[in-house]
Design a protein around this nucleic acid. Structure first.
Length: 649
RNA sequence: GCUUGUGUAGCACAGUUGGUAGUGCAGCUCAUUCGUAAUGAGCAGGUCGUAGGUUCGAGUCCUAUCACAAGCUCCA
């Protein structure tokens, strides 16, 4: 007999070679019906696993992350089976579970269209109703290859060949007539996949490389119960309502214009105002904390970029003025980063070790010629403005200055409400990168990454490692944020650079009179203002906190005879630096309140006969709360506390 | 750059098998001076993204192109 230690600590005895599924049946049919996989001694396993030793035994259901994955993986097989039934010529690529559902990549005669998804869904429903049993079997590598070749599944053959090199048996799953190369784990039958929806069909390159064929990918999600599916679809809809690209346009933060071009959003007065507020805040704070402001040109001759290496590495990403290949004529480029410009500030005169660290910072407009399919609202654009700094320092200052950069980031991101949802990524080089992306020696890289790793570990920062995510000149700490669609982008980056100083001939005279090459930290404090604004709009669903709201207060007189008092209030608030205006239209107050609320203006002040008489204002918030009457002094005190503390709601 | 989809008034949308463009909100004018999420009436507004093509005739069909969206790839 084997002893299984269950999740609750109890011990269950079963005969040797019992199937995990049978053990669960023994515990209870209810549990069996909801079981998706099992965890045996910490390892996620298939329900078909034969138990051969004493172990920890945990049943995973849809409520567990790994259970969901097995469930969705089975859903993806059902999708593939339906596609094969409807379009037999289609070849299968891969079909994994992802964070919120699953997808399957197909090489189809024609890419799938949204209408076809409905047909495929209907076929999937049939497969679920057929309650097909999933059976696992294994073949030797040779048999497996022969079988897949016989099935004419060329992508599977390619995958199988890689596994075959290990010499281990190859695992397959079969449900009805459908067979797929697959490691599992899977549900026992197709029956539990009751509620599902195919969400979209898109293109995706085979093995993620643009050099390969583009396949047709279908995304979907699935749940055991219809109510859960409905909830999930609602959640997706709700997320879309926070989409900055929709909200930002509706609330008039920005717009785009065909004849200006892709990736070149026009900031409307509200968007421009918020960016201005962010920019002033960051500039003032940085300069009050040891940074020196610079202002350098937006364009330079190609000569500058040749020194930095950008000409060789990122010519395609730059906007060029002139013919880049005609060396006999002057050629300029719009700047894609500030580094080589700011270095000229350092190079202006000879520097001593006493001058270091030199913390240069700039509110810098950059231009990057992104591929046409990359642009996205305010998040991915071709021209943007970033708080960009370069710290030039001695090696012994690296740790403290890096920490200082992180302190800035923590302060700024926390204040704008985004820090809590950020993740940290230690972006490292890949010596095997085929595109020859990285400059410098292995020793330099190892050293930079060792130092950075030590600093991060010392700070106790939780991070993941991103291989081949480094800049060409050094490793990065990337601070990542996900938008409402779950797509991740870099919000902030701090980089250690041991290469560029030498290229630019940057030196300092050390204590003992010898010339040394400094280290450089490239860093931003708040990322680029457009992207940060986008994420703030999504995070706050358009209702930016009072301190950063483009318009803070709307004064709503009930009748024209209240206008004088309204003006008095407006002037007093404006004198206190509060952004406010009067809605003096000949409309009913209900309408003015509605519109101010939809416009997400934090506070509305109603003034009527009562208010004029006792010299107060009736205060209402955009959340719909009636805060009662306040004197001007009371109101100002309340607003100023909220503004000065940069309160988040 | 690639795949799929979308593009009709400022915005949200309708527009049947090709027959010369509609609705709501917003805007403007007038009336209304109103107590916490939409006052009423009237007026105006579009070479249907752009350029070609098919046709007696194109918002509708075809081609190209631009922009927008999701995804892939990329992202100093």
């Amino acid at each position: 007999m084997l002893q299984l230690i269950l999740k609750d600590g109890s011990i269950r005895e079963v005969p040797e070679n019992t199937l995990a599924a049978e053990v669960i049946k023994g515990i209870g049919m209810g549990l069996y019906k909801s079981a998706c996989a099992v965890r045996i001694d910490g390892e996620v396993c298939d329900l078909r696993t034969v138990l051969t030793k004493n172990c920890q035994f945990e049943v995973l259901t849809f409520d567990d992350k790994e259970g969901k994955k097995a469930f969705w993986h089975t859903a993806s097989h059902i999708l593939a089976q339906a596609v094969k039934r409807l379009y037999p010529a289609t070849k299968l690529a891969i079909g994994p579970a992802i964070d919120d559902g699953f997808y399957y990549d197909f090489d189809a005669e024609h890419p799938f269209t949204p209408e076809e998804l409905l047909k495929i869904e209907a076929e999937m429903k049939k497969i679920v109703k057929e309650k097909l049993v999933l059976e696992q079997f294994t073949l030797s590598p040779e048999e497996a290859l022969a079988k897949l070749q016989g099935m004419d599944e060329s992508y599977k053959v390619e995958l199988c060949q890689e596994h075959a090199d290990k010499g281990e048996p190859i695992s397959f799953y079969q449900q009805g007539e459908f067979v797929d190369l697959c490691a599992g784990p899977h549900l026992m039958t197709t029956e539990p996949v009751k509620a599902f929806k195919l969400l979209s069909c898109t293109g995706a390159y085979w093995r993620g490389s643009e050099k390969n064929k583009m396949l047709s990918r279908i995304y979907g999600t699935a749940f055991p119960k219809a109510s859960q599916l409905e909830e999930d679809l609602n959640r997706r809809e709700e997320a879309k309502r926070r989409d900055h690209n929709k909200l930002g346009r509706e609330l008039e933060y920005f717009t785009t214009v065909d004849c200006i071009g892709q990736g070149l959003p026009v900031l409307l007065p509200k968007g421009a105002r918020v960016v201005q507020l962010l920019q002033r805040w960051v500039e003032d704070y940085e300069q009050a904390h040891g940074c020196l402001l610079t202002k350098t040109p937006l364009i330079a001759k190609r000569d500058l970029y040749k020194i930095s290496g950008h000409w060789d590495h990122y010519l395609d990403g730059m906007f060029i003025i002139g013919d880049p290949h005609d060396e006999s004529k002057e050629c300029f480029a719009l700047r894609p980063m500030t580094c080589p410009f700011q270095y000229q500030v350092y190079l202006n005169k000879q520097r001593s070790y006493r001058d270091l660290p030199m913390r240069l910072t700039e509110t810098s407009t950059l231009f990057r010629n992104e591929d046409s399919g990359e642009m996205h609202g305010l998040i991915r654009v071709r021209q943007f403005t970033i708080s960009e700094g370069h710290y030039i320092l001695r090696p012994d200052q690296l740790e403290e200055e890096f920490k200082g950069c992180l302190d800035f980031v923590n302060y700024f991101l926390d204040t704008v409400g985004l820090l809590q949802d950020c993740t940290f990524r230690f972006s490292q080089w890949d010596p095997a990168n085929p595109d020859n992306k990285y400059e410098g020696t292995k020793e330099q890289w190892d050293e930079a990454q060792r130092v950075m790793g030590e600093i991060l570990d010392k700070l106790g920062l939780e991070y993941e490692i991103g291989i081949d995510e480094a800049a060409f000149y050094g490793p990065k700490l990337d601070i990542q944020y996900k938008n409402v669609f779950g797509k991740e982008d870099t919000l902030v980056t701090i980089q250690i650079d041991m290469l560029l100083a030498e290229k630019f001939g940057m030196e300092y005279v050390d204590k003992n009179g010898t010339k040394k090459i400094p280290y450089i930290i490239h860093r931003t404090s708040l990322g680029c203002f457009e992207r940060t604004l986008a994420y703030m709009l999504e995070h706050f669903a358009g209702a930016l906190p009072l301190w950063i709201a483009p318009e803070q207060v709307k004064i709503i007189p009930i009748a024209d005879r209240h206008l004088d008092f309204a003006n008095e209030i407006r002037n007093a608030l404006a004198n206190a630096g509060i952004r406010c205006s009067i809605d003096d239209r000949a409309e009913k107050m209900g309408k003015k309140i509605r519109e101010a609320t939809l416009d997400k203006i934090p506070y509305m002040l109603t003034v009527g006969d009562n208010e004029v008489a006792d010299r107060t204002v009736s205060v209402r918030s955009r959340k719909g709360d009636n805060l009662g009457n306040m004197t001007l002094e009371e109101l100002l005190a309340k607003l100023l506390v909220e503004i000065n503390t940069k309160a988040k709601s």
